Structures are given as C-alpha cells and as structure tokens.
Amino acid sequence: MSQDIFGTRVIAAPMAGGTSTPAFVTAVHRAGGLGFLAAGYKDVAAMEAHIRAARDAGTRFGLNVFVPDPAQLPPSAAVLAEVEQYRLRLAADARRYGVELPRLRLDDDDEWQGKIDSLLADPVELVSFTFGLPGADVVRALQRAGSAVLATVTTVAEARQAAEQGVDALVVQHASAGGHSAAFAAAEVPGSGVPGTTAELTAAVRAAVALPLVAAGGIMGAADLQSVLAAGAQAGQLGTALLRTDESGTRQLHKDALADPHFTQTALTRAFTGRQARALVNEFVRDHPDAPEAYPAVHHLTAPLRAAAAAAGDAERLNLWAGTGWQRARSGSVAEILAGLLG
C-alpha cells in the first residue's frame, strides 16, 4: 500500500453525532483536505444516505465505523449493577428537565453487521474503525471489495495488533484529542502511560510498524501539523480545530461554549456515554466523576438528558467534546481554517 493513500496532509476527523455531515466533508474536500463521514449512531439507511450525498457532490471521502465491544453486549452483572446505581444518581438531572430516564438498552451494536454488509456491497474508498479492531476477515473482505482499511489506535501495543490484522494505515490518536478515546487494549507496560505529545506517540508508533500514519490529537495549527509530520505521520487529523466552522454540524450551543471563557479546562469523562471522552469540564462532568465504564448503555441512559439540555440551551449539562487545544479553535469557513495548514 502506498504511503500516500491520503493525497493530502490534512484530514478532518469523523465526528459522530451530527458534526461530520456530507456538507462538512464536501467543504473539507474542496478546501484541499480529506473528510471522513461518521457512521456511528446512524442506522444503515442513514449511513447510505450520507454516502450518496457525498458522492453526488463529487466529494472524495472516507467513512468511519464503530466497532462494538462484545464484553458490553450485554454488560456483566457487576457492570449492570453499576449502571443501575448510576441511573439513581441521574434522577436529579431527570427531574431538572422533567424527563424520564429510559429503560437500559443492552444490545446496541450500532448495526455493525448491516454496515459491513452495505460497505461490501457498495464499497467506499477508505474505511476507518474506532473503539476496536474489525477482525482480519473483515479487513480482507473490505480490501477485496476495493476499500483501504484504517484502524484507530492509541498505543504502540494497539498499533501492533492492528498491523497484524493487515490494515492499510493507522490513525494514531493521542489522549489530547477531543471526544471519545479509541483505546481498546491495556497499556503495553502497566503504569507506563502514553507519550506526552501527539508527535512523541506518533514517533513511537512509526518505530514499531511500517504503515502510513495519521496523527490525531491537539492539532490546531500549522506548527502542530508540522510536528507530527516530522515525527513520521503522512497527515494530521483535525477535529476540535474544525468544530466552530460554518460548515460544521455541531450545535451552536457547543460552538459558543468553545469560545466561552467560563470554561477553563477539559477532562476525560465517562459521565455522558460510559466511555472515556475528552470534554469541556462543566457541571455534569463535575457532578458525575465516577460514571461506570459501560458503553453504549450509559450513552442511551443519558440521551434524553443531553437532548433536554440542548433544547434548554444549558451548556452545563451537555457533552461539550473538546481537545486540549480548544481555546485555539476559530470560527469561519472550513476553507479559511485549512488555508492556514495547507498554504
């Protein structure tokens, strides 16, 4: 596989939940970057509709798919008990908005097999995976269908596992990235931690595997991009840097919060979804520091609370995903932001 499968040094992260729309990905393409549609949280029909819309616009794009965790489908009895306890702790939030917490949903695999079947029947150029590895059989099937396959990793150990499955490239996500962590395996040396910067993690992965790399985490400007390219990445992946753009599908409440000096830090939290994700620290994050590790059960449990907070314009109870460089996120068009990196 060519080291230059991306055709650009700037990639827009697949941001599920409404941000990475076909219009957003098209704007990235027209500005000289490469965008990824997000299949996460969509049914197969919605995923296919977004693919058609991007194709109709003449856009080059990739598609990202969530890998379900068999250990959470359903959760163990011990984890289920923790989720039930969390439901009790969320009662005050439910009363605040006058909503009812839903019954626990324990079987949501994000329509995994249906999405794989669809992508085999109607391939897209690039398919990336997050939250785990798809399995060597899926990798080979997609490649035979004509897709290049990317896996998202957060450590050298994960990178080696992905390489063993035969993927074509890796997205190397540092802990500084906003939104959900893609981590799926224990640290290679207990207590060793992760390299301190995205460039350092990229260099460590480059030394371990011979695959094209995309570096993700804290890339907000040209200097950040150059640092990961120098460390061995072929491209840098931007998420938070593009959240406030005109074409981003992010809620205006979220965009405004990124520019609000009231918010002074980010943290990794499981409070909203049961999976570690980096967000601006607001009241909800502070109120629920001990949320269980139970994705997607917690995601479904808090969904009506997040919807009610958004409807009420309450940024203190909303999942405000943001990387550590969020204060440098700018408003304006995608083209204006990318011009500073591609110029």
Rank of each mutant, 00 (worst) to 15 (best):
26 T>S: 14
29 H>C: 15
30 R>S: 08
32 G>D: 03
32 G>V: 11
33 G>D: 07
34 L>M: 09
36 F>A: 04
37 L>F: 13
38 A>T: 06
40 G>R: 03
41 Y>P: 01
41 Y>T: 07
43 D>A: 02
48 E>T: 13
49 A>G: 11
49 A>P: 01
49 A>V: 11
50 H>T: 12
50 H>M: 13
52 R>F: 11
52 R>M: 11
52 R>S: 15
52 R>I: 12
54 A>K: 09
54 A>S: 11
54 A>C: 10
55 R>P: 12
56 D>A: 15
58 G>F: 06
62 G>H: 09
64 N>G: 08
65 V>Y: 01
65 V>E: 01
65 V>W: 02
66 F>A: 00
66 F>C: 00
67 V>Q: 01
67 V>N: 03
69 D>W: 02
71 A>V: 05
72 Q>C: 03
74 P>Q: 05
75 P>R: 01
76 S>A: 10
77 A>R: 04
77 A>W: 04
79 V>E: 00
79 V>K: 06
82 E>K: 14
82 E>Q: 14
83 V>Y: 08
83 V>E: 10
85 Q>N: 14
87 R>C: 10
88 L>T: 15
89 R>T: 14
91 A>N: 07
94 A>Y: 01
95 R>F: 00
97 Y>W: 06
97 Y>C: 03
97 Y>L: 03
98 G>L: 04
99 V>K: 06
100 E>Q: 12
102 P>T: 04
102 P>W: 05
105 R>K: 11
106 L>V: 12
106 L>S: 10
107 D>P: 02
107 D>L: 08
108 D>I: 10
111 E>Q: 13
114 G>K: 06
115 K>T: 08
120 L>H: 09
121 A>G: 13
122 D>R: 14
122 D>S: 14
123 P>D: 07
123 P>K: 14
125 E>G: 14
125 E>D: 14
127 V>W: 00
127 V>P: 04
128 S>I: 02
130 T>E: 01
131 F>D: 00
131 F>A: 00
131 F>Q: 00
135 G>R: 03
135 G>F: 00
137 D>V: 09
137 D>Y: 04
137 D>E: 13
137 D>G: 04
138 V>K: 04
138 V>Q: 04
139 V>F: 04
143 Q>K: 05
144 R>M: 03
145 A>G: 11
145 A>N: 11
146 G>C: 05
146 G>P: 00
147 S>Y: 05
148 A>L: 15
148 A>W: 13
153 V>H: 03
153 V>F: 02
158 E>P: 00
159 A>L: 08
159 A>V: 11
159 A>F: 14
